[in-house]
Simulated assay, not measured.
Amino acid sequence: MNARALFTAGVEALQADEPERARAHFEESLRLHAHPATAFNLAVALHELGRLRDAEQYLGALRAGRYGELDEEASTAARALLTEVRSGLATLDVQVRGVVDEARVEVDGEERGRVTADGAPLLIETDPGEHELRAVSEAGSSPPRTVRVEPGGGASVVLEIEAIPLPEAAPELPLAEPETDAAPGDDTVLHVILAVVIGALVVGGAVTAGVLLSQGAAPIEDDVFGVTVTLGRP
């Protein structure tokens, strides 16, 4: 259908109390040909559907001359409808807690504003009815909250951001046992003691002094050899 036929079908749908079908016809007609009567009737259909924010946008554009020049009668009608639409909008007073830097507030999945860590509330105009709200930031997000507002009414909503949990630390792996060339249980190779007695003086059959060079032990004193010194491995 062309723009005129779609416009006529939209008017018939409005008269038959079928605003959704009327909306579809008027939107397509307006896409094909900009006309102030089409934009006005589209705003009427949106108003009946409760889509007040969309109706307000079309009426604002209509009064700004986007769809053509309005005569005095049409301008008065558009102004009256805009006043009625705005009086039906609801207001959400949203406060977000747990904001580290900045968070965006979503209403029905659409971003409607941002809040900062100063805690100032965010006022959002919305259509009457049921809405789902959520606050999202880099540090985390709030659980979704569902609220219902009446035409011209309002609601206060508090959203609490829950921090994203840090990933669990990986379990600590056990240290591997050092490999040795010695057979299990055989300590003879690792603890062989090489002793050299240097400058031993025997007086009356007794050792009076000596140095033992050994492997595998720190310097110790011994009743027989005197002081022993560890011999490091090459």
Results as ranks from 00 to 15, higher is better:
Met1Phe: 14
Met1Asn: 14
Asn2Gly: 15
Ala3Ser: 15
Ala5Ser: 15
Phe7Ala: 13
Phe7Pro: 00
Phe7Lys: 13
Thr8Val: 15
Val11Leu: 14
Val11Thr: 12
Val11Ile: 15
Gln15Thr: 12
Gln15Arg: 15
Asp17Leu: 05
Glu18Ser: 12
Glu18Gly: 00
Arg21Leu: 11
Ala22Pro: 11
Arg23Leu: 07
Ala24Met: 14
Ala24Phe: 04
His25Phe: 12
Leu32Asp: 08
His35Ile: 04
Pro36Ala: 11
Ala37Gly: 05
Ala39Asn: 13
Phe40Trp: 10
Leu42Tyr: 06
Ala43Met: 10
Val44Met: 07
Ala45His: 02
Leu46Phe: 00
His47Asp: 13
His47Gln: 06
Leu49Tyr: 02
Gly50Asn: 01
Arg51Phe: 02
Arg51Leu: 14
Ala55His: 06
Leu59Arg: 04
Ala61Pro: 00
Leu62Ala: 13
Arg66Phe: 07
Glu69Trp: 00
Leu70Asn: 10
Asp71Gln: 03
Ser75Thr: 10
Arg79Cys: 00
Ala80Val: 08
Leu81Val: 09
Glu84His: 09
Ser87Arg: 13
Ser87Cys: 02
Gly88Leu: 01
Leu89Tyr: 03
Leu92Trp: 04
Asp93Thr: 08
Asp93Asn: 10
Val94Thr: 11
Arg97Val: 12
Arg104Trp: 06
Gly109Asp: 08
Glu111Ala: 15
Arg112Ala: 02
Gly113Asp: 00
Arg114Glu: 13
Thr116Tyr: 06
Ala117Met: 05
Asp118Thr: 03
Gly119Met: 05
Ala120Asn: 15
Leu122Pro: 02
Glu125Ile: 01
Pro128Ala: 09
Leu133Thr: 06
Ser137Arg: 03
Ser137Val: 15
Glu138Tyr: 01
Ser141Ala: 15
Pro143Leu: 10
Pro144Asp: 03
Pro144Cys: 09
Thr146Ile: 04
Val147Asp: 04
Val147Trp: 02
Arg148Phe: 04
Glu150Gly: 03
Glu150Arg: 08
Pro151Glu: 07
Gly152His: 06
Gly153His: 11
Gly153Arg: 05
Gly153Ile: 01
Ala155Gly: 00
Ser156Asp: 14
Ser156Cys: 01
Val157Gln: 10
Val157Ile: 11
Val158Ser: 06
Leu159Ser: 09
Leu159Arg: 03
Glu162Leu: 12
Ala163Gln: 10
Pro167Gly: 05
Glu168Trp: 02
Glu168Gly: 11
Ala169Pro: 02
Ala169Gly: 11
Ala169Tyr: 01
Ala170Tyr: 01
Pro174Val: 05
Pro174Ile: 08
Leu175Ile: 01
Ala176Gly: 08
Glu177Arg: 11
Glu179Tyr: 06
Glu179Lys: 12
Asp181Lys: 05
Asp181Phe: 13
Pro184Cys: 10
Asp186Ala: 09
Asp186Gln: 09
Asp187Arg: 06
Leu190Ala: 15
His191Leu: 15
Val192Arg: 07
Leu194Val: 12
Val196Met: 09
Gly204Phe: 12
Gly204Ala: 14
Gly204Lys: 05
Ala206Trp: 05
Ala206His: 09
Val207Ser: 02
Thr208Leu: 15
Gly216Gln: 05
Asp223Tyr: 01
Asp223Val: 08
Val227Glu: 12
Val227Ala: 04
Val227Gly: 06
Val229Thr: 09
Arg233Ala: 14
